[in-house]
Simulated assay, not measured.
Amino acid sequence: MQRIEYSAEIADLLGRVRRRPAAGWPWRPEEPVPQWLPVKQSWGWLFARDGRVLTLVNPKDGIVSLPGGSLEPEDGGDPGAALAREAAEEAQAVIGPAHYLGYLYDRVGSANGGHECARVRMAARLCAVGPSAPDPASGRHYRRLLVAPGLAVELLGWGEPGLRQARAAVGAAVRQLGVPAAANEAIEELPMAGCEVFPISG
């Protein structure tokens, strides 16, 4: 088994990670969202060339997340457009075309005023990140880590349902983005100044 590598600074950050309780939303892989079910959120597995994915850590509360969020009017009902906008706002990320993976069925509708809704999951290339900046919507200033998808599930606290979702994301990324099935296991913080990660031309 490959040793996971990370710096002392990342070790300190990961030591403060706090996992959200699992929501228990059923995962519907590859199923189209029914027309009667509104899509309220879009979140993404954003892949580097070596198979790692972008995770965001809020250093104030230790909460880990994938890039993404609620659909806004300017997204025109397009989950891919919402993901690209949210990734840019939260992580200053530039992404490639987003590939639909499936959705989570939120029966309680906490993102939809108490009415049932869908929370879409997508996969895309993480092409580059710009200089680190606070999210304009929340003021949160996220730390940007590249981690293997399995470790992302652990940091997110999603358990076995999260692993099923990660496997779907990896499968799509292998087929459509050309990433390796076995990701690099090193944990890397992306530089504050920004960098290229996985150019579309690559």
Results as ranks from 00 to 15, higher is better:
residue 1 M to Y: 02
residue 3 R to D: 14
residue 6 Y to T: 05
residue 9 E to P: 01
residue 9 E to W: 09
residue 15 G to Y: 10
residue 15 G to H: 05
residue 19 R to P: 01
residue 25 W to F: 14
residue 25 W to M: 13
residue 29 P to V: 12
residue 30 E to V: 09
residue 30 E to C: 04
residue 31 E to K: 10
residue 32 P to A: 10
residue 34 P to S: 11
residue 37 L to F: 10
residue 39 V to S: 09
residue 39 V to R: 14
residue 42 S to T: 10
residue 42 S to I: 06
residue 43 W to L: 13
residue 45 W to Q: 03
residue 46 L to R: 09
residue 57 V to N: 01
residue 59 P to R: 10
residue 60 K to Y: 15
residue 62 G to Q: 05
residue 62 G to W: 04
residue 64 V to P: 06
residue 67 P to F: 04
residue 71 L to N: 11
residue 76 G to H: 01
residue 77 G to K: 07
residue 79 P to Y: 11
residue 81 A to E: 15
residue 81 A to S: 15
residue 84 A to Q: 06
residue 86 E to R: 14
residue 86 E to L: 02
residue 87 A to N: 02
residue 91 A to N: 04
residue 92 Q to M: 11
residue 93 A to N: 11
residue 93 A to G: 10
residue 94 V to C: 00
residue 95 I to H: 04
residue 98 A to K: 04
residue 98 A to S: 14
residue 99 H to R: 13
residue 100 Y to N: 02
residue 103 Y to M: 05
residue 104 L to C: 04
residue 106 D to M: 01
residue 108 V to Y: 13
residue 111 A to K: 11
residue 113 G to T: 11
residue 114 G to Y: 00
residue 117 C to L: 09
residue 117 C to P: 06
residue 118 A to Y: 12
residue 119 R to Q: 14
residue 120 V to Q: 03
residue 121 R to F: 08
residue 122 M to H: 00
residue 123 A to Y: 00
residue 124 A to V: 02
residue 131 P to A: 13
residue 140 R to T: 14
residue 142 Y to Q: 07
residue 143 R to Y: 09
residue 144 R to T: 08
residue 144 R to P: 03
residue 145 L to I: 07
residue 147 V to K: 03
residue 156 L to H: 07
residue 158 W to S: 11
residue 158 W to E: 15
residue 161 P to C: 08
residue 162 G to Y: 03
residue 163 L to W: 13
residue 164 R to C: 00
residue 166 A to L: 00
residue 168 A to Q: 09
residue 168 A to H: 01
residue 175 R to P: 01
residue 179 V to G: 07
residue 179 V to W: 04
residue 179 V to S: 04
residue 182 A to Y: 03
residue 187 I to R: 02
residue 187 I to K: 03
residue 187 I to Q: 01
residue 188 E to I: 15
residue 191 P to N: 12
residue 192 M to D: 15
residue 193 A to R: 10
residue 194 G to M: 01
residue 194 G to A: 05
residue 200 I to E: 15
residue 201 S to H: 14
